[in-house]
Amino acid sequence: MSIEIAPAQTATVQQEHNLGRIVYRFRQTPLSLVGLAMVVFIVLVGIFGPFFVPFPEDTTGNTRMEARLSEPDDTYFWGTDEVGRDVFSRTVVATRTSLLIAVIVLVIAIAIGVPLGAISGFMGGYVDEAIMRITDIFLTVPALVLAMAMATALGSGMVNAMIAISLVWWPGFARLTRGQVLALREQDFIESARAVGASSPRIIFRHVLPNVLSPVLIKASTDMGFAILVAAGLGFIGVGVQPPRPEWGVMISEGRNMLREAWWISVFPGAAMFITVLGFNLLGDGLRDIFDPRMRQ
């Protein structure tokens, strides 16, 4: 069944405006600081990396057959692949692609899920029932299968992959928001807003949604890592980002047959992905501990 009620968290809301306290709590959880540092590093690489890579042309279709399968050395820091492209340049440029996919997927998922969840929890009754059943249906569809189906029907590509991931991602946000709203709905300030004559849209947007923001952001942070993984998975099976544009999943896939002769083709993009996902997860866990200690498992 889909009925899950997130624990009420409103008591912790009161601490959130206190910046000093947040900084302090952050310091108390060293792992979240590590996560934060990793995320900051990855994001900087994603934004500025492509301007500084040694072989930017390798990411747009250039091949260098004379240097194929070079081991990592001074010229090619992380070696070259089957057609002589610099793995380092491609891995760095792929960072931006992965981050972009994940951010866009989450923005779409939040844009769909949060309002639906809020309406569902706030209105209750048949509206709630209808929205939650639709949510359930979307939850049953695996991202990979949907993306493959869409690739067959509409063609492979980054945009279709993002749409496919977003479509299966929003139910998580809808259910999280609904649970939060159910708890909030009992609060007197909602009743108070009604007593002074506030309309339902006003109550939802001014009184309910601002109070569910922090759990949503926490989930978004943790989900960044998972979204990157799913996007890479789609790239790996060939229905995601299309070559020659570099993407971690695609790169791992390209190198998987030569793992014994040229391990560097798959291992470096894999490591980059590992660090990114780990960073976002640590950060997400840290944020959750700071804002919402009761959600800790």
Binding site: T10, Q187, D188, F189, E191, S192, G197, R206, P210, N211
Partner: peptide, 19 residues
Amino acid sequence: TRERMQIVFQNPFSALNPR
């Protein structure tokens, strides 16, 4: 009419939107 008739709640903290 609601302008002329208002309510004050028992738990003042929960009656004020923390945001």
